[in-house]
Amino acid sequence: MYENMKKRFWRCHVCGDIHFGEKPPETCPTCGFKNAFVLCDRFEADNVMKDVDYAIDTPEAVMKVWEDFTVKAAFHTWDDKQAVHDLSLGVLENRKSKGGKFCPCRITTGDREEDLKLLCPCNFNAQRTWKENGECWCGLFVKR
């Protein structure tokens, strides 16, 4: 899932959009130009992004990210808003203490590659609870 070694940085030569993946998008999602991406390295990608400074570090910001994530999806966030708020506090606590917004209903292993899979939202499509009960492990995302 996180086979980052195969992924590369790509820069839109028109607007500077940075893409991280095995292949670049055919159309730049920001400026709309076709075939605009050129392979670049991390040094160049970091340079393009160095003035970008924002953080998703409040419960409100985290919950908005989750809501936006579900707008066009076949799932929504849990109806229990208190639980969603608790989960946002959990991922923020893990961001502070463990370096990533890890699911508070999972546990890190110490293996970086493995732990990256626990970043919320995780790839819940593969989880048993998603297939059997229609919800991710922590219950944050529920099938419509």
Binding site: C105, R106, I107, T109, G110, K117, L118, Q127, R128, W137
Partner: peptide, 22 residues
């Protein structure tokens, strides 16, 4: 406590559907 949970990880993973969870 986390280390202890990891120590029992094989059985817990199996029960949790493949990953360590609470």
């Amino acid at each position: 406590n986390a280390q202890l949970m990891r120590k029992y990880g094989d059985k817990i993973r199996e029960a949790c559907g493949g990953e360590l969870g609470v």
